[in-house]
């Protein structure tokens, strides 16, 4: 029965894989070993793997300087039995042993989501999303830059490539992470995904501005806005992890949601904490657009006064509620 010896790095990722048909395998730094190790704390002739008549493999330490260990840092005094899949250490060098009958994980089918995400890495998509982002920023400059500040146009426009570059940081980190994990870097799909999420965010922001204006700044509109941002970020992170890791869908969604909530925690806090009486500045929604953007009718004075009476009642209840506390 053949034996497979895996050489592992510090993160216990496989760096080499050897298969032997003979019953004895020599391990050490010397060049006449079967598995030649690099680690300077390993002896030239450190240990031997031996198969007994029943087919079990034993690790024998050859009186090495730094010793050999099994899982749980159990020292190998003379020789110890190794089970298939078990990790052992020669000094600090980790090895894993498998016999050839050891089961392997099921074949992972192509994931539709992953394929779609990879397809997003096409430059045309990246350009489209980048254009949406740039248009939004140009619109913002156009809306806010006053006449006196017209000379600031070029400087403000230069901010656009800078912000587009800033969006590259996340995909770059994810690509590096993937490389470390010996997977495809997927930089372009990650970049495309990030731009897409940012573009969605700006479009959602514009829609919520309009919605908030139409719903007269109601708390519901603000809630919808924050939920939307959280969902966009969850989708982004979930996609990122799908491309960069082999996590299960449930796990990566959970991590993505947690990260998204963390990223939007300021907005959530703003939405959920009651205003403080210490605030001299009042908290209200001042969003306003030209009248044609308003779909409703508006209220006449009589209806308005009824609303205000309700407001007085609510505030009076709040006062009494606090008194009771």
């Amino acid at each position: 029965m053949a034996v497979i010896v895996e050489v592992l790095n510090k993160q216990q990722k496989v760096t080499e894989r050897h298969k032997f048909l003979q019953p004895q395998v020599n391990l050490g730094r010397a060049f006449d070993n079967d598995v030649i190790l690099f680690n300077k704390h390993v002896c030239p002739y450190h240990a031997v793997l031996q198969q007994d008549e029943e087919g079990h493999w034993w690790l024998e330490d050859l009186s090495s300087v730094n010793g050999s260990f099994l899982s749980g840092r159990k020292a190998v005094v003379a020789r110890e039995l190794l089970r298939s899949g078990e990790i052992c250490w020669l000094g600090e060098q980790a090895l894993r042993l498998y016999d050839d009958a050891h089961p392997v994980a099921a074949t992972m089918p192509f994931s539709v989501i992953e394929q779609r995400l990879q397809a997003m890495g096409h430059w045309a998509f990246i350009l489209l999303f980048a254009l949406i982002l740039a248009t939004d920023q140009v619109a913002e400059i156009w809306l806010t830059l006053s006449k006196q500040m017209e000379h600031m146009w070029p400087a403000r426009l230069l901010d656009i490539p800078r912000s587009l570059l800033l969006f590259c940081i996340l995909p770059a980190i994810l690509a590096l992470w993937s490389r470390f994990n010996q997977q495809e870097s997927h930089f372009m799909p990650q970049l495309s995904l990030t731009y897409a999420a940012a573009a969605c965010g700006t479009l959602w922001g514009a829609f919520c501005f309009w919605l908030g204006f139409n719903l007269d700044g109601s708390g519901m509109a603000q809630g919808v806005e924050v939920v939307g941002y959280t969902l966009i970020l969850t989708a982004l992170f979930s996609g990122n992890f799908c491309l960069a890791t082999h996590w299960s869908p449930r796990f990566r969604t959970a991590v993505a949601l947690a990260l998204a909530l963390l990223a939007t925690s300021g907005q959530w806090a703003n939405l959920l904490t009651p205003p403080s009486p210490f605030d001299r500045s009042l908290r209200y929604d001042a969003r306003i657009l030209p009248l044609p953007f308003y779909l409703g009718q508006g209220k006449d004075i009589q209806q308005y006064e009824q609303d205000l009476q309700q407001l007085f009642e609510q505030v009076e209840q709040k006062r009494q509620y606090k008194d009771k506390q």
């Binding site: 007269d216 009486p277 209200y284 508006g298 209220k299 006449d300 004075i301 609303d307 709040k318």
Partner: peptide, 12 residues
């Protein structure tokens, strides 16, 4: 005082 509460409305 209590904190401010606001009514926000398009008015005719």
């Amino acid at each position: 005082v209590t904190a401010f509460s606001c009514n926000n409305q398009l008015l005719n």
